[in-house]
């Protein structure tokens, strides 16, 4: 991103307006402490006993205690919740990417009457957040489909609400594929469907990854719909964390350990996919 400016120019600007000012580093440290501090308190709190926490809440572990973490890690509920979260997020992501790509393809590369109207239907979906429809959705999924307390009962509605954004992101990707490729494929005698699988899908990989990562993280962090539809050992990690913290509110160290472990997957995914998430978010705003 910075490549637009030559290094020399950039340095000249820096000379006047910043320089090696130590104040900058102090401010930077304050910002870093502010954003990471609470998280670190949680992680470190998991290494302390409740007695330590009560004695000096802001202190460091002394001595370091590992039992809170080992207890959380040997808690079958923790693994059950992780499995549920993973399964639901994976199903959501697959459904969104497959349906989103398939829908975006004709909307981008076929010419037919009603195409723009159809696109508008999907775009209008952006106006309906899941909160507006959550109570009817709860009734529909649990009473009409009998899917309460199942992975699919959460994944399908989540995928449906993620579709509008996916179609909006993917369509320009598919429009941007040069017409020459399509014409060449047609001359080779390939059908539109095989053109889609053999050429469009591989070339749209970056768009699909962006859509997939956004859907996965949203599903992983979702709380409202799982809260209404999942109980017992079908709960996801956010539900598990919330319930654990109210059930064992006296065991603060245990809550810290459980919560810290639960945030690891999202953080790892973010660190791996940082570039794509960041450019996806920035692109969505610019677009």
């Amino acid at each position: 991103m910075t490549t637009a400016t030559t290094p020399q120019r950039a340095r000249r600007q820096q000379d006047t307006f910043s320089g090696g000012n130590p104040l900058i580093y102090v401010l930077a440290l304050v910002v870093a402490a502010g954003s990471l501090g609470p998280v670190l308190f949680g992680v470190l709190g998991g290494f302390r006993t409740n007695a330590q926490l009560a004695e000096s809440p802001a202190g460091l572990p002394d001595p370091w205690v590992f039992s809170n973490y080992t207890e959380a890690l040997t808690n079958p509920d923790f693994w059950r919740f992780t499995l549920n979260s993973t399964a639901i997020a994976t199903i959501t992501t697959l459904v969104v990417v497959v349906c989103g790509m398939m829908a975006a393809y004709p909307l981008a590369r076929y010419r037919f009457r009603g195409r723009e109207a159809l696109f508008t239907v999907f775009v209008a979906g952006l106006l309906f957040p899941v909160t507006v429809a959550v109570i009817p959705l709860f009734i529909l999924v649990s009473q009409n489909f009998g899917l309460s307390n199942t992975w699919w009962g959460i994944a399908l509605p989540q995928a449906a609400f993620a579709l509008p954004l996916s179609v909006v992101i993917l369509r320009p990707f598919l429009i941007a594929l040069p017409n020459e490729i399509e014409e060449a494929a047609m001359i080779d005698g390939s059908s539109r469907i095989s053109f889609f699988w053999r050429i469009v899908v591989p070339l749209s990989w970056p768009g699909m990854v962006t859509v997939g990562v956004v859907a996965f993280v949203q599903s992983w962090n979702a709380y409202l719909l799982p809260l209404l539809l999942l109980q017992g050992n079908m709960r996801t990690l956010p539900l598990g964390v919330a319930d654990y913290s109210s059930e064992y509110s006296a065991d603060v160290a245990g809550v810290y350990a459980f919560t810290s472990l639960a945030m690891i997957p999202a953080l790892v995914l973010f660190l791996l996919m940082q570039k794509r998430i960041v450019s996806g978010l920035q692109g969505a705003v610019k677009g």
Partner: peptide, 26 residues
């Protein structure tokens, strides 16, 4: 037309069932 229907149907069905119907029900 058949191709368009094939490509659009899964997304449209999902969208109608889980977005439009619940909103109208609300």
């Amino acid at each position: 037309r058949a191709e368009i229907v094939f490509f659009v149907t899964p997304a449209l069905a999902l969208f109608v069932v889980f977005v439009i119907v619940p909103v109208l029900t609300a």
